[in-house]
Deep mutational scan, measured.
Amino acid sequence: PAHPYDRLKTTSTDPVSDIDVTRREAYLSSEEFKEKFGMTKEAFYKLPKWKQNKFKMAVQLF
């Protein structure tokens, strides 16, 4: 299930529990994912792991 970005980011005051914290981005809706990352999930997962992590750090999901 998708969760709002505000509850997934590492600085959230009301974090979602029971998620894989190493894959926070996977819980974003497709729309919100595209808004935050500027690309689709499919394109994101084709990137090298280090680049994925760099993007995730930039949007507080790492």
Rank of each mutant, 00 (worst) to 15 (best):
P1D: 12
P1C: 15
P1S: 10
P1I: 14
A2G: 11
A2P: 15
A2I: 15
A2S: 15
A2R: 14
H3N: 06
H3C: 15
H3Q: 07
H3M: 08
H3V: 12
H3Y: 15
H3T: 06
H3A: 04
P4W: 07
P4I: 04
P4Y: 08
P4G: 08
P4C: 15
Y5R: 01
Y5S: 06
Y5T: 04
Y5M: 02
Y5H: 07
Y5A: 02
Y5V: 06
D6Q: 00
D6K: 00
D6R: 00
R7K: 12
R7D: 11
R7S: 15
R7V: 11
L8Y: 08
L8V: 08
L8N: 07
L8R: 00
K9S: 12
K9N: 14
K9Q: 13
K9E: 11
T10I: 11
T10C: 14
T10V: 13
T11G: 09
T11D: 14
T11C: 15
S12A: 14
S12C: 14
S12D: 03
S12K: 02
S12R: 02
T13W: 05
T13F: 06
T13Q: 12
D14K: 08
D14A: 02
D14S: 07
D14I: 05
D14G: 04
D14C: 12
D14M: 08
D14N: 13
D14W: 09
D14V: 06
D14H: 10
P15S: 03
P15N: 07
P15L: 08
P15W: 00
P15M: 04
V16G: 04
V16T: 06
S17A: 14
S17N: 12
S17T: 15
D18S: 08
D18H: 10
D18M: 05
D18F: 09
I19F: 07
I19P: 03
I19V: 05
I19N: 04
I19W: 05
D20Q: 00
D20L: 02
D20T: 03
V21E: 12
V21W: 08
V21L: 06
V21F: 10
V21H: 09
V21T: 10
T22N: 11
T22E: 07
T22Q: 07
T22I: 06
T22W: 06
T22V: 04
R23Y: 07
R23W: 08
R23N: 06
R23S: 09
R24F: 04
R24L: 12
R24Y: 09
R24T: 13
E25Y: 06
E25G: 02
E25L: 04
E25P: 11
E25H: 00
A26H: 07
A26R: 05
A26T: 05
A26M: 15
A26P: 04
A26Q: 15
Y27N: 03
Y27D: 03
Y27R: 01
Y27P: 03
Y27G: 04
L28C: 07
L28Q: 02
L28A: 01
L28V: 03
L28D: 03
S29G: 06
S29E: 03
S29F: 05
S29N: 10
S29T: 14
S29W: 04
S29D: 07
S29C: 08
S29R: 06
S30K: 13
S30E: 15
E31I: 11
E31P: 06
E31Q: 13
E32C: 08
E32K: 02
E32I: 14
E32Y: 02
E32P: 01
F33N: 00
F33H: 01
F33C: 02
F33Y: 02
F33Q: 01
K34P: 05
K34N: 14
K34A: 15
K34R: 14
K34V: 13
K34G: 10
E35D: 10
E35W: 12
E35S: 10
E35C: 10
E35Q: 13
E35T: 10
E35F: 06
E35G: 05
K36S: 03
K36V: 15
K36Y: 15
K36R: 12
K36M: 12
F37G: 00
F37H: 01
F37Y: 06
F37P: 00
F37Q: 00
G38N: 09
G38L: 07
G38M: 09
G38A: 07
M39V: 04
M39I: 05
M39C: 08
M39G: 00
M39Y: 03
T40S: 11
T40W: 06
T40M: 08
T40A: 11
K41E: 08
K41Y: 08
K41G: 01
K41I: 11
K41N: 01
K41H: 09
K41T: 05
E42M: 11
E42D: 14
E42S: 10
E42Q: 09
E42G: 06
E42I: 09
A43S: 14
A43G: 07
F44T: 00
F44E: 00
F44V: 02
F44C: 01
F44K: 00
Y45T: 04
Y45G: 07
Y45M: 03
Y45P: 00
Y45R: 06
Y45D: 03
Y45W: 06
K46N: 14
K46H: 14
L47G: 00
L47C: 03
L47S: 02
P48M: 00
P48V: 00
P48L: 02
K49D: 04
K49I: 14
K49S: 07
K49T: 11
K49E: 09
W50Q: 03
W50D: 08
W50Y: 10
K51S: 09
K51W: 11
K51L: 15
K51M: 14
Q52G: 00
Q52R: 04
Q52K: 01
N53P: 01
N53C: 12
N53Y: 08
N53S: 08
N53D: 15
N53W: 05
N53R: 07
K54W: 11
K54F: 11
F55S: 08
F55G: 00
F55T: 02
K56R: 11
K56N: 02
K56L: 07
K56P: 11
K56G: 02
M57S: 07
M57Y: 10
M57D: 10
M57H: 10
M57V: 12
M57R: 14
M57Q: 13
M57T: 06
A58V: 09
A58F: 07
V59G: 01
V59Q: 08
V59R: 03
V59N: 10
V59K: 03
V59I: 09
Q60K: 09
Q60T: 04
Q60N: 13
Q60F: 12
Q60A: 11
L61P: 05
L61F: 03
L61C: 11
L61R: 02
L61E: 05
L61I: 05
F62C: 15
F62G: 15
F62Q: 12
F62W: 15
F62H: 15
F62L: 13
F62N: 14
